[in-house]
Design a protein around this nucleic acid. Structure first.
Lengths: 228, 228
DNA sequence: GTCAAACAGATTGTATGCAATTTGGTCGGG
DNA sequence: CCCGACCAAATTGCATACAATCTGTTTGAC
């Protein structure tokens, strides 16, 4: 994949937001970012435009761009939609996916199992992400797959956080099994229900966790060694 | 709403694509567009970036941006997702919408009825769009509403086209009534089914029409009075 | 003393110039 | 005659300079 420079800058800025370098409501100064990344304002502006489109920042004409972390309400809304989108994917996948795709999904789930046994949340998160993406692809609807991946990416830091809850990995795994079973049987309705519940639980767990922490700071995304 | 200059340029370029000035696969020359709109390349590039995000054009690094009309397969995929999205909105609306919102929806549908009686497809299209948007809003999920509106906008020219089929407006109206009935009764499942079928039929009708025309040219969007 | 208007500083938006890369063609070799 | 490498024209991407607008302060009048 040919990543253009504004793309990598956008990813880096995204990390800065996740890292807490920029907090909700902060103005992203163009010259300051240009200075930080050793480029001119032009690619910075392009990167900010993309982030604005992705919803991470808000662009106010003649005022600048501001970090815009979703509030509790919007976050709940997004998880609600994510659950529905994944349910759609599961329903379509149940009747459309090939045996090979099912086998791939089983493999991905086994990798999740191993990560859970090793008590490695980072590895689990990665394999879990792949598991879900395989279901998106198995829907045999490229547009749906793309939308699901976009929202998954946007919810990434929040979905990740809830894995730190004790016993969550094991619970998540058993939910995966339910989805896998329904898909194996070609039971679209049940697959949809199972995956919807799986994702909805993630949203609830995140809210639970946030209530426990009772901390307004944005969540940290964890590892990302791309900047030295 | 404060429309910035790249926004109006993006809308104008969109029209150029819908008008057939630019066809599928054409390269959008930056200097040519800059010359046409009497601005420099910078706002043109911003406008093209937004269109690329919206999916109307494709940006190939170091090559340029190309018009990218969705093919039959992708269009079918998008209608499939649109139907699912609207079904979700309807299900949520059935249990969440207020009496006032239901009254507004009834009014919108009455305007559709009047337009159909007057045999005015343009008016019908406008009121129909408002009808659907009211359901998005009635879902009480702002994020879902936004996503639905984005996809609706993208499918706009294709949804519009099928209204030219004889008897389609009357059929569409009766489908609206079914949705309205289910929503009045608070029957989420039935409301979802009815709206899903309504939108899916639109997709099918469009394909039908396209097969009749057997014309590869992109559809014309017709009127769009948003720009004075 | 308070409010309003003007001014200064800062910041975004736009224009233009330059560098890097791609493409099409042409020339040379096999 | 065909294939590969080099070259030039064109085009995108980036950097910088300038213009327009916004914000906060100050100054003046009431």
């Amino acid at each position: 994949m040919d990543r253009t420079r504004p793309d990598v800058i956008a990813a880096a800025i995204e990390q800065l937001i996740f890292d807490g370098t920029f907090c909700d409501g902060d103005r992203m100064d163009e010259v300051q970012l240009a200075d930080r990344f050793l480029v001119s304002r032009t690619p910075i502006r392009e990167a900010l435009n993309r982030l604005a489109h992705s919803g991470l920042v808000e662009h106010v004409p003649r005022r600048g761009v501001f970090v815009r972390q979703p509030g509790p309400v919007e976050l709940m809304e997004m998880f609600e939609v994510m659950a529905e989108l994944e349910a759609i994917c599961a329903r379509y996948a149940a009747s459309r996916m090939t045996d090979a795709a099912l086998a791939d999904l089983r493999e991905a789930n086994q990798r999740c199992t191993k990560a859970a046994q090793a008590n490695d949340p980072d590895a689990y998160y990665g394999h879990n992400e792949a598991f879900h993406q395989l279901i998106y692809a198995a829907s045999c609807n490229g547009f749906l797959e793309g939308e699901a991946r976009k929202l998954q990416r946007r919810l990434q830091p929040f979905r990740r956080l809830q894995l730190s809850l004790r016993g969550r990995m094991a619970q998540s795994l058993s939910e995966h099994d339910a989805v896998l079973d329904a898909l194996s049987r070609g039971d679209a309705a049940e697959a949809g229900r199972a995956l919807h519940s799986h994702v909805a639980i993630q949203g609830e767990k995140f809210h639970h966790l946030k209530a426990i922490l009772s901390d307004k700071r944005p969540p940290r995304s964890g590892t990302d060694p791309q900047r030295g």
